Simulated scan of single mutants.
Amino acid sequence: MGISAPIAITGLGCLSGAGMSLPESMENMFRKQRYPHPPRRFSTDHPVSYPVLELRDEFKLPLDHQETVYARTSQLALAAALEALADAGWTAENLRGKRVGVCIGTTVGCSLNCDDFYRAFKDAGGDPDMGIIQRFLRSNPAAVIARQLKLDGPKQTVVNACSSGTEAIGIGASWLRAGACDIVIAGGADELARVTYAGFSSLMISDTEPCKPFDVERKGLNLGEGAGILILESEAVRKNKARGYLLGYGSASDAYHLTAPHPDGTGLKRALSEAFSVAAVTPEMISFINAHGTGTPDNDRVECRVLNEVLPGIPFLSTKGYTGHTLGAAGGIEAVFTVACLQREELPASIGFSTVDPELSATPVIKNTRISGDIALSESLAFGGNNGVLIFSKGDA
Score class of each variant (00 low, 15 high):
residue 227 A to R: 01
residue 228 G to I: 03
residue 228 G to L: 03
residue 230 L to F: 04
residue 230 L to K: 01
residue 231 I to Y: 03
residue 232 L to F: 03
residue 232 L to V: 03
residue 235 E to R: 01
residue 235 E to S: 09
residue 237 V to D: 05
residue 237 V to C: 11
residue 237 V to Q: 07
residue 238 R to M: 02
residue 239 K to Y: 00
residue 239 K to H: 06
residue 239 K to E: 13
residue 240 N to G: 10
residue 240 N to F: 05
residue 240 N to K: 14
residue 242 A to G: 07
residue 242 A to S: 12
residue 243 R to T: 03
residue 247 L to Q: 11
residue 248 G to C: 10
residue 250 G to V: 09
residue 254 D to F: 11
residue 256 Y to P: 04
residue 257 H to P: 05
residue 257 H to M: 07
residue 258 L to Q: 10
residue 258 L to V: 14
residue 258 L to K: 08
residue 258 L to C: 11
residue 259 T to S: 15
residue 259 T to E: 12
residue 260 A to E: 14
residue 260 A to M: 09
residue 262 H to W: 07
residue 263 P to S: 13
residue 264 D to N: 14
residue 266 T to R: 13
residue 266 T to L: 05
residue 267 G to Y: 06
residue 268 L to K: 03
residue 270 R to C: 07
residue 271 A to P: 04
residue 276 F to C: 06
residue 276 F to H: 14
residue 277 S to H: 15
residue 281 V to Q: 09
residue 282 T to P: 02
residue 283 P to Y: 11
residue 284 E to Y: 00
residue 285 M to W: 00
residue 287 S to G: 11
residue 287 S to L: 02
residue 291 A to P: 00
residue 291 A to Y: 04
residue 292 H to Y: 05
residue 293 G to R: 06
residue 294 T to A: 05
residue 294 T to Y: 08
residue 296 T to H: 09
residue 297 P to G: 08
residue 300 D to N: 09
residue 302 V to A: 11
residue 303 E to K: 06
residue 306 V to F: 12
residue 306 V to D: 13
residue 307 L to H: 13
residue 307 L to P: 03
residue 309 E to D: 15
residue 310 V to I: 14
residue 310 V to A: 12
residue 311 L to R: 01
residue 317 L to I: 01
residue 321 G to L: 03
residue 321 G to W: 05
residue 323 T to D: 12
residue 324 G to H: 14
residue 326 T to Y: 10
residue 327 L to E: 12
residue 327 L to I: 15
residue 327 L to N: 08
residue 328 G to I: 04
residue 329 A to P: 05
residue 333 I to M: 04
residue 333 I to Q: 05
